[in-house]
Design a binder for these strands. Structure first.
Length: 423
RNA sequence: GGAGAGGUGUCUGAGUGGUCGAAAGAGCACGCCUGGAAAGUGUGUAUACGCCAAAAGUGUAUCGAGGGUUCGAAUCCCUCCCUCUCCGCCA
């Protein structure tokens, strides 16, 4: 959520930035400003009336104590009007604030100046490519066939017990899951992230804090009986750890990592692009989250991007880094890098990570502040990224490392898997 | 699931209708004291939104949340949420 005061002070810039995100309802900006004007006026009227009523009440108390009953009654007689006005103004204020809020939540975050204009994924900017694309034999298989051949994943069994998009990992497939999770967590800890293990369900306030609610509830599974949402990413519980918190300056940066399953309804398309592990309703992911001083947030974003890249390098996966264009970015992000690995058998790039700086968009909703050098409270910046999501990593590992003898496990993973080959 | 107790500032904790944004203590910050530290001592120490060019100042709101009674509510009433204890169930 954008800050109203910022919108007021930087109207032109806000409009210009929103245009980069192809935001269509630019009129909302002026409506927000007008509503805020109205809010201030009504607030002032309410405050002034309350002040009068408060001082009258004090006088009455004083007079009663001195048993000047008649004078007290005289003042009492005047309070009726104030009471009515106070009621009227606070009702007005509530209506205005609600309207303001409803419009404010429709405004996406402002994209950073480096965000390219554009509408579709084709307009994303390739920042860099790294790693050699492997030469596969002519009979190379896509990962879903490899998974069947080596009995790593049983998709049908998942359908039986739950439904499509909930695979069952078996044998070395199950081991590989656990190995990747531990490898990713260990690497994150080496990079200074503290591991947390968090609930997989969150309440509505948490969904609001990170921006999934209102509006995107369709993407989350909802437990009606208890009004809880299954988390679509560990970003939600981990970032919400700091909701309604004022951090001391020396507590920044906060660096957390955590592994969780992620649940996504993804009511979407079918076909080759979502076959196998390409798109699932449940998958495992290690997430990294930082809460930082605004002055450092873009340096931190680069560090997080470098961390994710280092994982891909260690796993020997060819990858590229994209700077998402305005049209492809998430609602709350100011700048997003996507990391994609090259799937040799599918002959296409698969998104395996997304690293974003939310600036104050989340912290404003979360009321996540820190005390700055002047001792004043200030909104912190939040960032997060996948480091990494498992399914597509597994997909490319299986596909890219397939040989006549079986599938070769990357060296860094062998201490975790305790086997070198899937065969 | 059943019964009971309770939710006050960073923490402990007082406060049952007016002088309460809230005693006291602890913690923390700064100063004094000290060769240095501890002890001692003094001062300060919530957040948000207004007004003001800004600082100073000042107004309003907030004692789990929302509503009500009252000229006036942390304090009385209602609803909801949460925590704790005991019992039941149970990984």
């Amino acid at each position: 959520m954008l800050q109203v005061s910022y919108i007021r002070d930087n109207r032109e810039q806000v409009l210009e930035r929103l245009a980069v995100k192809n935001f269509k309802q630019a009129n909302l900006v002026d409506e927000v400003i007008q509503l805020d004007d109205a809010r201030r006026q009504t607030q002032a009227k309410l405050d002034n009336t309350s002040a009068e009523a408060n001082s009258a009440a004090k006088q009455i108390g004083e007079l009663m104590r001195n048993s000047k009953k008649e004078e007290a009654e005289a003042i009492k007689a005047k309070t009726g009007v104030w009471k009515e006005d106070i009621k009227k103004y606070s009702e007005e204020l509530a209506v205005i604030e609600e309207e303001l809020y409803q419009k404010l939540v429709l405004l996406p975050n402002l994209p950073h100046s480096s965000v390219p204009k554009g509408l579709t994924p084709e307009d994303n900017e390739v920042v860099l490519e790294n790693g050699a694309v492997p030469e596969l034999p002519a009979n190379a298989l896509p990962h879903w066939e490899l998974a069947a051949k080596y009995k790593l994943i049983d998709f049908e069994l998942g359908v039986k017990i739950t439904g499509a998009g909930f695979p069952v990992y078996t044998n070395k497939g199950a081991k590989l899951q656990r190995a990747l999770i531990n490898f990713f967590i260990d690497e994150a800890e080496k990079a200074g992230y503290k591991e947390v293990s968090v609930p997989l369900m969150v309440n509505e306030a948490s969904g609001f804090g990170t921006g999934q609610l209102p509006d995107k509830e369709g993407q989350m599974y909802f437990v009606n009986e208890d009004s809880l949402y299954l988390i679509p990413t560990a970003e939600v519980p981990i970032t919400n750890l700091y909701r309604d918190v004022i951090l001391k300056a020396d507590e920044l940066p906060v660096k957390n990592c955590g592994h969780t399953p992620c649940f996504r309804r993804e009511a979407g398309s079918y076909g080759a692009h979502v076959r196998g592990l390409n798109r699932l309703h449940q998958f495992d992911k290690v997430e990294i989250v930082q809460v930082v001083n605004p002055e450092t947030s873009y340096d931190v974003l680069e560090q997080m991007s470098a961390h994710v890249q280092s994982l891909l390098q260690k796993l020997g996966l060819p990858y590229r880094v994209l700077r998402l264009c305005g049209g492809d970015m998430g609602f709350g992000s100011a700048l997003t890098y996507d990391m994609e690995t090259w799937s040799a058998a599918q002959q296409r790039w698969l998104e395996v990570s997304s690293v974003s700086n939310f600036e104050t968009f989340q912290s404003n909703r979360l009321k996540l502040r820190f005390r700055n050098a002047e001792g004043k409270t200030q909104l912190a910046h939040t960032l997060n990224g996948s480091a990494l999501a498992l399914p597509r990593i597994v997909a490319t590992l299986l596909e890219n490392n397939q040989t006549d003898k079986g599938i070769k496990i990357p060296e860094v993973l062998v201490p975790y898997t305790k086997f070198e080959w899937i065969d």
